[in-house]
Amino acid sequence: MAAEARDRDDAGRARSARPRDGLGRPLPYGAAGVERQPEGVRRTPGGTVREAQRLLDAGMPFHAHEVFEDAWKSGPEAEAPLWRGLAQLAVGLTHAARGNTVGGARLLRRGAASLAEVPGAHGMDVPGLVRWAGELAHRVADGAVVDAAREAPRLRGGGSAS
């Protein structure tokens, strides 16, 4: 059996070119999808928060996670736990909105635990985000249907957008 050709990025790394929906799920080639976030973008912390909030408010937590991941990987080591915890919250919301209650609740709790060790930073209400994640994880574990845009957290001010 011949190996199928894999999609590659400009650097030759394997990278799927399939379009994705707002929750990051792959769509068939040729389908209209949501534009992917460019990788490796260096933003200011404020720029990271603004772009991630825009994506969360639009119901695209998978894409917000990519923004947090860029900050985690390119920012100061001392801030890695903050950005990693936020990325975990965004992925938890993604899984919950996709109907993966076990994975969603687990990632929301993991992100909340990571953030519980981080002082507030860049104007974000970290204790409010920890509360939001814990409450949502509990509801998700109980089988709640999650709408990503309606459940989006407020990065500055805590709680959800609704």
Rank of each mutant, 00 (worst) to 15 (best):
E135Y: 12
E4P: 01
A3H: 13
R98W: 06
N100F: 09
V146Y: 07
G104K: 05
W72E: 13
D10P: 04
R139H: 12
G123L: 03
R131L: 14
R20F: 01
G59H: 04
A137P: 07
A78Y: 02
Q37N: 01
S74V: 01
G128V: 10
P153Y: 10
G22H: 08
W83P: 05
G158H: 13
A112F: 04
L82A: 11
H95F: 11
L27F: 07
R109I: 00
A87W: 01
E51K: 13
F68P: 02
V130Q: 08
G59E: 01
S74I: 07
A90S: 12
P119Y: 00
R154V: 12
P119S: 09
L27K: 08
A52V: 09
G40K: 14
A87M: 01
A113W: 01
L82K: 04
G59Q: 00
R150H: 12
V145I: 10
W83N: 05
A64Q: 04
A80Q: 14
S160D: 15
P76L: 11
D57P: 00
D142L: 13
P76Y: 04
G120K: 04
A152M: 03
V34H: 11
P45Y: 12
S16G: 09
R150D: 14
M1Q: 06
F62M: 12
P153Q: 11
R8T: 13
L155C: 06
E79N: 09
P153W: 04
R154H: 13
A78R: 15
A161L: 14
E66I: 11
R13H: 13
L27I: 08
D57Q: 12
N100Y: 13
R106N: 14
A2P: 15
N100Q: 15
S114M: 06
R109N: 08
V118K: 03
V41F: 08
A90Q: 01
D147A: 10
T94K: 09
K73D: 10
P119F: 00
Q53C: 09
V67W: 05
E35N: 00
G159R: 14
A3N: 10
T48P: 06
R84C: 03
A52F: 08
Y29L: 12
G159L: 13
T44F: 03
R18D: 10
H138P: 00
G120P: 04
L107Y: 12
H95W: 09
D57K: 07
L136F: 10
E151A: 15
G143D: 12
V145W: 06
A97K: 00
A80N: 05
E39C: 10
R36T: 10
D9M: 00
V67R: 11
S74T: 15
